[in-house]
């Protein structure tokens, strides 16, 4: 299996009121194509920050990030946006669907941004049908249950067929039943599409669905990741 993501001594600091806060300190990690990786650890350790850096939603202060052997840290905003658009899909804990758009429009939006000429409507309907949401395609997100919203969010993330799917606490707002359903779906996607999945969770039961688990711990004030 080829190495798709390589993080070398990644550091992220934030300056607030002239005081520097370290969110992530010298964190190193490598992920192979087709991996399903869970990042666990206590709250505030920097799991989400790490995930955001991997997904080019945020950028590191120091260190090296290689995606497919391309140095992401040397890319400009435009290049990072292109990389994000082409290779990454996201699921957030709070689903983050656009409230005034229907479920169908939300899912189609990702496809429209990737390829404006593609017929996003039929593709979106197909994927919503796969996720059991075909009866709700014209509903607004606030008319759906949490589980349905998270499935819609997952449909939006995978409709572009990303190489890497990033999930930040995907089961955080779901009940036990829906959480297991979500994890099973993610595992299925990983196996059937060979999509690399990196998810952040503090629930070890959910982490057990993954092939690998990385735990982040604070050692001497530094967030260290180990398997």
């Amino acid at each position: 299996m080829s190495e798709i993501i390589q993080l070398q001594k990644i550091k992220k600091t934030l300056t607030k009121r002239r005081q520097q806060h370290t969110l992530l300190d010298e964190c190193s990690l490598s992920v192979n194509q087709g991996d399903m990786l869970a990042i666990t650890g206590q709250s505030g350790i920097g799991k989400s920050t790490l995930l955001n850096i991997i997904g080019c939603l945020d950028f590191p202060t120091q260190g090296k990030y290689l995606f497919d052997d391309h140095d992401v840290t040397k890319m400009n905003i435009k290049q990072r946006n292109m990389l994000r658009k082409k290779h990454f899909g996201y699921i957030f804990q709070q689903y983050l669907l656009i409230e005034h758009l229907s479920v169908l429009d939300n899912v189609a939006l990702a496809l429209q941004y990737r390829n404006p000429r593609q017929n996003s409507c039929s593709e979106s309907k197909k994927i919503l049908n796969e996720f059991g949401l075909s009866n709700h395609e014209n509903h607004k997100p606030n008319e759906l249950s949490g589980g349905q919203q998270q499935r819609a969010s997952l449909a939006r993330a995978i409709i572009t067929n990303p190489r890497v799917l990033l999930a930040d606490e995907p089961t955080g707002a779901l009940d036990a039943h829906n959480s297991h359903l979500m994890m099973k779906t993610l595992k299925e996607i990983n196996q059937s599409r060979d999509t690399t999945i990196i998810l952040v969770t503090h629930d070890l039961e959910m982490a057990n669905y993954c092939k690998r688990t990385i735990t982040m711990e604070s050692i001497l004030g530094k967030a260290v990741a180990h398997e």
Binding site: G55, L57, I77, K78, N81, R84, K85, Y90, L96, L97, I98, E99, L109, A110, Y113, R114, R156, A157, T160
Partner: peptide, 14 residues
Amino acid sequence: SKEIGIRLAIGASA
């Protein structure tokens, strides 16, 4: 701001 962030995250350019 939230909507703009979501759009940027799912692949929209600025």
